[in-house]
Structures are given as structure tokens and as C-alpha cells.
Amino acid sequence: MRGNIILRVASKLLIPCILLFALYVQFHGDFGPGGGFQAGVIFGSAFILYALIVNIESARRAVPAVVSRVALALGLLLYAGVGVAGMFLGGRYLNYSVLAEVPTTGQHLGITLIELGVGITVAAAMITVFYVFAGEER
């Protein structure tokens, strides 16, 4: 699809918007619909679109497979780590109220962090699975 100029130009316009929308969904999930899962999928889909339109090699240069695999584990570790941090601060596992002075602030911080972890893992999972499928040649 290297020669298709309409697709290339349109996706060039779209991809920044998709990434921005993913970040909006990620951090606005407390107030509207959305959250880590949806944001991760949208974020990953931007890279998949890039890989489909341009080519898989440039996408691999932008996000190497190693990065997406490390991010896959990192998101889960962030989630679990927030729970452990709560334990060290004297609460129960995954109780965010102890993360800050005011319980609701702690809850807010905890939710933002674990949603970020969810988003990282989901986006990395999407990109990794896509790479794996695209890397298999016939």
C-alpha cells in the first residue's frame, strides 16, 4: 500500500487525533465513559493503522517489539505495585485511600495509576499480538 497517497495523507491526519483521543479517554475515564481498557485499545490501534498504511518495518522502528513486550509486563506491575504500595502505607492490598492524606485524593491517585497500568498493558498487548501476526510470513 506504499503508493496509495490518499490513504497515507488521511492516516497521517488521523493518527495524531487517535493518539490524543486515546489519552483523553485514558485520563477522562473518571468523569465520562472510558478508562484504561478502551484507551489502551485505541492507542494500540493507532500504531496498527500506521503499520497497515505505511509498513510494518517503520512501525517496528517507532515501537520496537522489545519495548512493547516490556510495556506489557510493566503495566501489570504498575497495577500490582499500586496495591503493594497501599499495603506498605498501612492499608489493605489495592486500598487506595491510604495513598494520600485525604482518602478521596488517594482513591483518585490510585485509580489514575491503575488505569494507566491497564492502558499500558492493553496497548502493549494489542501491538505485540499485531506484530506477531504480521511477522508471520506465508
Binding site: 475515564g29 473518571d30 468523569f31 465520562g32 465513559p33 478508562g35 497495577y79 500490582a80 496495591g83 489495592l94 487506595y96 478521596t104 485524593t105 482513591q107 483518585h108 490510585g110 485509580i111 491503575i114 488505569e115 491497564v118
Partner: peptide
């Protein structure tokens, strides 16, 4: 929890284990 979206507060806080 103090988060306006109840879905998020249930998903991430009350049901944190399930989401994990």
C-alpha cells in the same frame, strides 16, 4: 471514592481485584 463516574469507581476501586 470521589470519582464522578461510578462505573470507574466500581471497576477500579471496589472491584480492584477483579480488574487486576
Amino acid at each position: 471514592v470521589g470519582v464522578p463516574n461510578i462505573v470507574t469507581s466500581v471497576l477500579a476501586s471496589y472491584r480492584g481485584y477483579d480488574t487486576l
